[in-house]
Design a binder for these strands. Structure first.
Length: 283
DNA sequence: CAGCGTTTAGGGTTCTCGAT
DNA sequence: ATCGAGAACCCTAAACGCTG
């Protein structure tokens, strides 16, 4: 049984006539007869009372009509779901490094416009997120750029100033050899930037302590355990309160670019396209 | 004769499956 | 992955019977 058989059946049932159904569906009348005959054969029951001037549904036909209406309406609903590019729906899986301050604006604006989309956010470090985009486990990700990979497409989201964060108001670069550095796990863009800086200065840090979350890093810095490097905008509140202090990082290590990446050869759904449009509109 | 449904033969398209 | 042959399917045109 095919969807088309149900369409033909419904047309005959509605018109009470094979000829009128054929006219409506742009078929020749004999074809409609054949389709109905096959349907009856498949269901092993007649569906119509035949009379001189047309056809009328019998009880079995009425039961089939109820079901076919339901099936065809679901089919139509499903077709519209994919046709309607202006109202995306479904799940959008986005990766993000923890310190993207533009994210709440992007998310709230996107939620308002497309409430049917279920956004799934996964935090991580740049290297892991890039790999998950390449493995198609994520639709896209906010990471620290630039990323040089032939399969990665990228969109610059924001440039931020990196600061070295300590508990004390004063800072000497030598302190890095005296106190631990509190950093995200390997693969983090900020950490790589700091490591390049240290290498250029010829400084070997006393100790590197790895943490998984922004909260624990900042809590530990505030407790005086060590220092970290982070975009200035993500700790503005803490600096204002005097909980921690931010110290300038010299060029060319002082700026970090957050980018949105996606896999070049993957299909861009309307859901993802609208998300990227939202990012661009808020830049 | 007009209007209806049914049957049959045949053409075009699509599907399946094995070979390469 | 691609190609080709055969099978299966879908559709049409034409002829037919039935009824008012």
């Amino acid at each position: 049984m095919e969807f088309n058989d149900l369409r033909i059946f419904q047309a005959v049932a509605t018109h009470g006539s094979v000829s009128k159904a054929a006219l409506e569906l742009n078929y020749v009348q004999s074809n409609v007869t054949a389709r109905i005959k096959l349907l009856e054969k498949e269901l092993r029951t007649p569906l119509f009372y035949r009379h001189k001037r047309g056809m009328i549904l019998n009880p079995e036909g009425k039961r089939l009509l109820d079901h076919s209406r339901e099936i065809l309406s679901k089919m139509e609903e499903m077709t519209h779901l994919f046709e309607d590019k202006t109202y995306p729906s479904g799940v959008l899986e986005i990766g993000i490094v923890e310190t993207v301050n533009a994210l709440p604006d992007i998310l709230s604006s996107y939620y308002r416009k497309y409430p049917n989309v279920e956004l799934s956010l996964k935090t991580g470090v740049t290297d892991d997120l890039v790999q998950q985009v390449l493995d198609m486990k994520l639709d896209g990700a906010f990471v620290t750029g630039p990323i040089r990979h032939p399969l990665i497409e990228q969109l610059e989201v924001i440039q931020e100033k990196l600061v070295l964060v300590t508990k004390g108001e004063s800072f000497r670069i030598e302190e890095i050899t005296e106190k631990p550095l509190l950093l995200y796990n390997k693969g983090c863009g900020y950490r790589e930037r700091l490591e390049s800086w240290m290498k250029a200065e010829g400084i070997i840090p006393k100790q590197i302590m790895e943490f998984g979350t922004f909260g624990t890093i900042m809590g530990s810095v505030a407790a005086g355990i060590g220092m970290t490097i982070i975009p200035e905008s993500s700790i503005t509140d803490l600096i204002v309160k005097g909980t921690v202090y931010g110290h300038s990082v010299p060029e060319p290590y002082h700026e970090i670019t957050t980018i949105f990446i996606w896999r070049k050869d993957s299909y861009i759904s309307s859901t993802l396209q609208c998300f990227m449009d939202e990012i661009v509109s808020l830049l």
